[in-house]
Nucleic acid binder design. Structure first.
Lengths: 160, 160
DNA sequence: GCGAACGTTCAGAAATTTCTGAAGACAGAT
DNA sequence: ATCTGTCTTCAGAAATTTCTGAACGTTCGC
């Protein structure tokens, strides 16, 4: 069955969990709309109507989601409006981006190590610094591994 | 050099970057205080004074940071107050916890896959589901690898 | 050019989050 | 048992974030 209502509900539900994970509310709703649509592209107007939100907030949200590298402009055939669609690597990109703050944390901690004299605090800071350095080097590898594995088996199929 | 003022500044700076990464303000400040102290344990009163915050907000922050598994009660010798200290595995724990939302995202997406009929949207949802499933299985491995590597070389040293 | 349709920006309103201060609860000392 | 110092809870205040609506630009068709 799965009426249009169910689809919207599922989309809103996902948007809310993304908010729980730290994403801005409207940006999450816009992202979910793209994820759940079968249309090849959406315009700001489409989103405004679909989400029942003002043109202003949709504009801001699109800007954010674009900066995150999750959607892109779609070649607009004859149409006057700007069309957008999800990018292919959206999810790995999103995950990679969530690691951007790690850079900042790392430099803050490294500065701490320089500032603090010998003692337990310094040992702790060194441990933390090493851990975040490790992460920073391993995450890209992780993502590559997923992409390789996926294009390898090319499953793209659903389940029972 | 590195006076007490520098230490506090470095701690506050780290707290702010943690806030940028999504942590609550006061919780981040409390955490940084523990990270940067050479004292074997801190009490709520110590923190309140050190951070210039009310007893109420410190209490709430301690509760959060405890629930995150980053600090623990320290055996209090004769003292009437409650003493706390950082846990050993704090940082790997913190990182693991940041992945808790992934569980939620995963089930929201899985539900989406069930709800949506065949089409581009469904393919997208399947890709996303697979990616988050992959993450969920790989992250614990990653952390184990770090811990193994660390206890292996046992470097615990600073740099020039 | 001129007009109309869209998109963007921004000041202010609304909602949410976060902090404080005071009142209450608890544990140990006397 | 009572008192004292310490922690917790909670209602309201303050600050921050987020949304809206209106004014302004831009681009395309005529």
């Amino acid at each position: 069955m799965t009426g249009e209502t169910d689809r919207k509900q599922a989309a809103e539900h996902l948007a809310l969990t993304l908010v729980g994970a730290g994403m801005q509310r409207m940006a999450a709703r816009v992202l979910a709309a793209f994820l759940f649509t079968d249309a090849p592209s959406l315009t700001a107007g489409d989103l405004s109507e679909e989400l029942g939100a003002s043109a202003g907030s949709v504009s801001g949200a699109i800007k954010m989601v674009m900066q995150m590298g999750l959607i892109e402009r779609a070649p607009a055939p004859g149409s006057r409006r700007e069309h957008y669609r999800m990018r292919d690597r959206a999810w790995t990109t999103l995950y990679g981006r969530q690691h951007a703050p790690i850079d900042d944390i790392l430099s803050a901690v490294a500065h701490g190590v320089e500032t603090v004299g010998p003692g337990p605090a310094r040992e702790r800071l060194i441990y933390m610094r090493d851990f975040y350095e490790f992460l920073l080097s391993e995450v890209p590898t992780l993502i590559e591994r997923f992409e390789a594995q996926r294009s390898g088996q090319h499953r793209g199929e659903s389940r029972p």
